[in-house]
Computed example of a mutant assay.
Amino acid sequence: MNPLAAVAAAIDAVRAHFADNSVEVTPDGAGGAYVIVNDIEIGNRYSPTVTWLGFHINAAYPASDVYPHYTGPLTRVDGQPHGQAIQTFDWPKRPGPGLQLSRRSNGWNPTVDNAALKAEKVITWLATQ
């Protein structure tokens, strides 16, 4: 599969996986794309409980991990600080402050891993922090 087709297939898979959500896609000019999935529910450990999730699918996909992920600003309802894998960050694709979620997949395997699955894993991980 050529790189552009792989990125397009990844975007289609994200849209299918998050069929109930609005998905924004912006080409990066280098064969990849920036993706934002809106209205992601992350449970009751954070305020707000709904945010957006953004990430970059680069032109090397599927041979490269989809990393990092970004959300809108969130605070923990228990008043504790975010853990070391979550930092405040301004992602230029979405104005204003947000969070960067550093969840690298060291064992990324392009035959089983994909952008939609990775996004779902990041959401599940965030909801349990």
Score class of each variant (00 low, 15 high):
residue 115 A to M: 04
residue 24 E to T: 15
residue 59 A to M: 02
residue 97 P to E: 06
residue 98 G to H: 03
residue 50 V to C: 14
residue 11 I to K: 09
residue 89 F to I: 02
residue 116 A to Y: 00
residue 18 F to P: 08
residue 15 R to P: 11
residue 115 A to C: 13
residue 105 S to P: 05
residue 25 V to L: 15
residue 26 T to A: 14
residue 6 A to P: 01
residue 83 G to C: 08
residue 61 Y to Q: 00
residue 112 V to G: 00
residue 119 A to P: 01
residue 61 Y to E: 00
residue 88 T to Y: 03
residue 49 T to Q: 13
residue 89 F to E: 11
residue 37 V to G: 01
residue 105 S to C: 14
residue 108 W to A: 04
residue 86 I to Y: 10
residue 69 H to K: 07
residue 55 F to P: 02
residue 64 S to T: 11
residue 100 Q to N: 15
residue 128 T to W: 01
residue 82 H to E: 11
residue 23 V to C: 04
residue 60 A to H: 07
residue 84 Q to N: 14
residue 105 S to Q: 12
residue 18 F to G: 10
residue 88 T to M: 02
residue 21 N to Y: 01
residue 41 E to K: 01
residue 20 D to N: 12
residue 39 D to S: 14
residue 86 I to Q: 12
residue 127 A to T: 10
residue 32 G to H: 03
residue 55 F to E: 03
residue 1 M to A: 05
residue 14 V to S: 09
residue 48 P to T: 04
residue 63 A to M: 04
residue 20 D to S: 14
residue 124 T to K: 02
residue 75 T to E: 13
residue 79 G to W: 02
residue 53 L to M: 12
residue 4 L to P: 02
residue 79 G to Y: 05
residue 61 Y to V: 00
residue 103 R to P: 01
residue 101 L to S: 12
residue 18 F to V: 08
residue 92 P to D: 15
residue 12 D to V: 10
residue 58 N to Q: 05
residue 44 N to I: 08
residue 103 R to C: 04
residue 34 Y to H: 14
residue 115 A to G: 08
residue 59 A to W: 03
residue 39 D to V: 00
residue 88 T to D: 06
residue 116 A to K: 00
residue 44 N to P: 14
residue 86 I to M: 13
residue 95 P to M: 04
residue 1 M to F: 01
residue 122 V to H: 01
residue 101 L to N: 12
residue 23 V to K: 05
residue 121 K to R: 15
residue 92 P to Y: 11
residue 82 H to T: 04
residue 67 Y to W: 15
residue 113 D to Q: 10
residue 94 R to T: 10
residue 126 L to P: 11
residue 68 P to M: 12
residue 57 I to M: 10
residue 4 L to T: 10
residue 70 Y to C: 06
residue 30 A to L: 11
residue 55 F to A: 05
residue 102 S to K: 10
residue 68 P to Q: 12
residue 124 T to Q: 10
residue 116 A to T: 02
residue 93 K to A: 10
residue 81 P to D: 11
residue 98 G to M: 01
residue 25 V to K: 14
residue 1 M to H: 01
residue 121 K to N: 13
residue 24 E to D: 15
residue 1 M to L: 01
residue 114 N to K: 06
residue 94 R to I: 13
residue 77 V to Q: 07
residue 77 V to D: 02
residue 64 S to I: 00
residue 53 L to P: 05
residue 66 V to S: 02
residue 71 T to N: 08
residue 56 H to W: 11
residue 37 V to M: 06
residue 16 A to T: 13
residue 51 T to M: 06
residue 112 V to D: 00
residue 97 P to K: 07
residue 62 P to S: 09
residue 30 A to G: 06
residue 21 N to R: 14
residue 124 T to P: 03
residue 77 V to C: 05
residue 97 P to R: 07
residue 74 L to Y: 03
residue 50 V to G: 14
residue 118 K to A: 14
residue 84 Q to G: 07
residue 118 K to Q: 11
residue 119 A to L: 06
residue 129 Q to D: 15
residue 43 G to E: 07
residue 53 L to F: 07
residue 4 L to I: 13
residue 8 A to D: 14
residue 120 E to G: 09
residue 29 G to N: 08
residue 122 V to L: 03
